[in-house]
């Protein structure tokens, strides 16, 4: 049975920011390949025009005029943050520029 390479699986896990153990890597190597094989069948389907439906919504967009200020309090902004030192929310771990 065909499968993805370990590197390909790890790239996807990296995009999704998920950790995988060796078993999961092996598992996804097959799973993702199987999904792709079944999905690739759609390429043989003919469609008459090239139009794409991003959303079934038929709403006409309405843009806001600059009249309000719907800001919330700083306390509410910080309320759910696991790591905070008023007035900041912070995260540990170094980051390159």
């Amino acid at each position: 049975m065909e499968k993805l390479t370990k590197e390909e699986v790890l790239h996807v896990a990296d995009l999704a920011r998920l950790k995988l153990d060796e078993n999961e890597i092996e598992d996804y190597a097959y799973k993702l390949k199987a999904i792709m094989d079944s999905i690739s069948l759609i390429n043989s389907i003919e469609v008459t025009d090239n139009e794409m439906t991003i959303s079934p919504s038929t709403a006409k967009i309405s843009l806001f005029k600059e009249q309000e200020n719907k800001t919330i309090s700083k306390a509410d902004a910080l309320k759910n943050a696991p790591n905070k030192i008023d007035p900041y929310i912070y995260v540990g771990g170094s980051i390159d520029e």
Binding site: S40, N43, I45, V47, D49, E51, M52, I54
Partner: peptide, 10 residues
Amino acid sequence: YYEKALKIRH
């Protein structure tokens, strides 16, 4: 695939 899917959706 994604763009094709949107076309079939249409």
